[in-house]
Nucleic acid binder design. Sequence first.
DNA 1: TATGAATGAGTATTCATTCAT
DNA 2: CATGAATGAATACTCATTCAT
Lengths: 201, 201, 201, 201
Amino acid sequence: VPRVSEEYSAARRQQIIDAAFRCFALKGFHGATMRDIYEEAGLSPGAVYHYFESKDEIIRASFDFDYQRSLDVFTAARDSDDPLTALNELLDFFLRGLEGAAALGAGRVNVQGWGEALVNPNLLETIQRVLEGYLDALSHIIRRAQALGQIDDSLDPLSVGRLLLSTYYGLELQKALDPDVDVGKYSAAARALLLSTSRRA
Amino acid sequence: VPRVSEEYSAARRQQIIDAAFRCFALKGFHGATMRDIYEEAGLSPGAVYHYFESKDEIIRASFDFDYQRSLDVFTAARDSDDPLTALNELLDFFLRGLEGAAALGAGRVNVQGWGEALVNPNLLETIQRVLEGYLDALSHIIRRAQALGQIDDSLDPLSVGRLLLSTYYGLELQKALDPDVDVGKYSAAARALLLSTSRRA
Amino acid sequence: VPRVSEEYSAARRQQIIDAAFRCFALKGFHGATMRDIYEEAGLSPGAVYHYFESKDEIIRASFDFDYQRSLDVFTAARDSDDPLTALNELLDFFLRGLEGAAALGAGRVNVQGWGEALVNPNLLETIQRVLEGYLDALSHIIRRAQALGQIDDSLDPLSVGRLLLSTYYGLELQKALDPDVDVGKYSAAARALLLSTSRRA
Amino acid sequence: VPRVSEEYSAARRQQIIDAAFRCFALKGFHGATMRDIYEEAGLSPGAVYHYFESKDEIIRASFDFDYQRSLDVFTAARDSDDPLTALNELLDFFLRGLEGAAALGAGRVNVQGWGEALVNPNLLETIQRVLEGYLDALSHIIRRAQALGQIDDSLDPLSVGRLLLSTYYGLELQKALDPDVDVGKYSAAARALLLSTSRRA
DNA sequence: TATGAATGAGTATTCATTCAT
DNA sequence: CATGAATGAATACTCATTCAT
C-alpha cells in the first residue's frame, strides 16, 4: 500500500513549478509549451497533469511563490515606533531584492503575469489578492506615519501606498526590460525624494 | 504611385491598427486571432496581409501610436525656466492622461506589451526606444533642476528619471488591473511627496 | 474576386462526408480519427474544419444522407387505394434496399449511430426527427388500412408502425452483424406473417 | 486457492461489472473512462486491472449478464405441445421484459454494444454467439410449429426466427431512443399481427 | 492483493499565413 | 488590390495501462 508521503507530493509539485518558472521566464507564458515544461521537469505529460489540472493552473502557481515571505516582512514593519523609517527600510529592502530576483527571472515572469492577468481571470484574482495585501499593510503604516506627523496627513493613505508600490513595480518593469538598470542608484533616489526623513509635512 | 493611393493606403493601415488595438485590449496579443482582427476591421485576411507582413508587425504598429505626441510634450518642457515645476506639470499631465487612455484600452495594451516585449525582440526594441526617449528628456530636465539647486545634485539624474517613469508606469499598471484606482488622489500624492516645490535639497 | 460557387462548396462538403462515411463504416465513429477522415478525403485538417465545425458535426451530417429520399417513397404510398398492399410494398422496398445499403456500409454506420445517439444529444435529435417522420407516415397509412378493415382497428396505429419499423431496423442490425443474412427469405417471411393480404382482421 | 477467495473474487468482479454497466449506460463505452469505472466501483485502477485484463474485457463482460437466464426460458419453451402459443408467450415475455430492463439501462448498453461490436471483434463474437443461441432455439420451435401446420411451412424457419428477433431488438432500440414507447401496446400489436393463433397457414 | 503515481502514444482542433483566381 | 479556400505545423490535454512499493 504505497501511500506516498505529502512531502513527496509537495516536492513533485515544486519541481514542476520550478521547471515551468524557468520556461516562462525564457519563453513567456504562451511561448512555453507544456512540452517544454514537462521536459524541463524531466517528467511525462501525464505526470504533470497528475499534479496540475491545466497549464493555467501552473501559471497561477508560478505566482504565489514568494508572496507569503513578502507579507511576513510587512508584518514585521507594521507596528514599528518610527513608521517613516520603517517604510524607507521596507522600500529599500524590496528594491534591493529585485537585484537577486532578476537573476532568477522572477521579474520577467511577473511582468508577463501582469499582461496575462488582464486576459486571464484566474491570474487576475491571484494578483489582485496579492496587491490588496500589500496595499493594506502599506496603508496601515502610512496612517501611523501620518498620525505621528511624519507624512502630510491630507494625503490619501491608499494613494501613497500605490505610489510606493509604483516605485517598486516600475523598477521591476524597467529592470526586466533592461537588466543593466542600477538598482542601488534608483534606491538612493527613491529614499531621498520620496520619504526623506529629514523633512516633515 | 499617385498621392491618392498613398492616403488610401495610410487609411487602410490605420483602420487595421485600430481594429487590432481594440482586439488586443479585449483579448490580449495571443488571445486575439488574426481572424478577430480582420473581422473587426471588416476586411479579408488577404487584405490585412497586403498592408502588414505579419501579426507581429501589427502588434508593433499598435505601439507607436502616441509616442510622438508624448515626446512633443517633453520637448516643450525641456527648457523651462523652472525645471522642477515643469517636471511636476509633466508628471501631472501624463498621470491625468491615464484616465482617458484607460477608457480606450491603451493601458491594457501597454501592460500586455511590456510582457510581450520580454519575449519578442522586435517589440522590445520599439519599447526600449520609447523608454530611452523619455529618459533622455527627463534626465535633461532633471540635470537643469539640479543645476538650479531644485533637486539634490548628488542623485543620479537617470535614476531620478526612472523614478518618475515608475510613478507613471506603476499607475498605468495598477489602473489596468483595477480601473477604479483614483488618478486624482494618486497624482496629488505624487506631487506632494515626490517633487514638492516647497522644499529644496 | 474569386467567390467560389455554391456548387463548389457543396461538392467539397459532400467529398468530406463521403470520406467520413467510409471511415466510420470501417472503424466506427470513435475509431475513425479526424486524420483518417481528412486523409481519406485528400484534404488538409484546416480544409475539413473550414466546412465543418467539429467531428461531431461530420458525424451528424453522415446521417441525413438518404432521409429525404426515404420520405419521398412514403409520401408516394400515403394515399394508395389499397393501404395494406402499399404497406407490404413499402416494407418490401425498404427491406430489399438493405441489400444495397449494406454494400455501401450504410448499415454499419446506422447501427453505430443508434448507440452514439444515446450519448450524443445532437445525433439523438437528428435520429429522433427521422424516426418521427417515418412513424407519422406509417401511422397515417395504417389508420387508412384500419378504416378499410384491412387491419384490426383495435390495434394502436403507432404501435403497428413501430412494429413495421422494427422489422426493418431489426434486419438492418442483423445484417450488419452478419452480412450473410438472406434478405429475400426474411422479406418473404415478413410479408407472409406480418401483413398477409389474404387475411382480414 | 481456498473457496473463500473464489467467492471473494467473484464478488469483486461483479462489483466492477455493475459499476461499469452503470457508467456505460450513462456515458457510453467510449465516454466512460476507466477512471469513471474504478471510481464508481470504489476501487483503485490497479484493483480493477487485477480482475480484468483490459477495458475491452469489461465491456465484453457487461454483455453476458442475462444471456444464461434468457436461454433457460427458451429451453423451457422448446418442447411445448403448442409451439405457436409458446412462441407467442416467449415474445410477450421478452417484450415485456424490456420495460424493466430499460429502467436498469440495459437497453442503452445493448444498443451501444451492437455498434461497438461492428468495430470490436471480441464483442462481435460474444454477440454473435448469443444471437446464434437465440436463433437456434427459435428455429427449433418454429420448425415444430410448421410440422404441426401452425406456421406456413414454405417459410424459412431461420428467417422467421430473425423476424421475431427483429420484433424484440427493434423495440429495444426504439425504447432506448425514446423511453416513453408503450411496450404493452407494441406487444399487443405484435401478438395480433405476427403470430395470431386464430389463424392457420 | 492493493495502491496510485507515472507513462506516453494518441487526438481534436487552432490559426498565422499563402496564393490561385 | 481583394478574396477566402486551403495549408499544415503546432498544441493542450486524455486515458488505458503499468509497476514499484
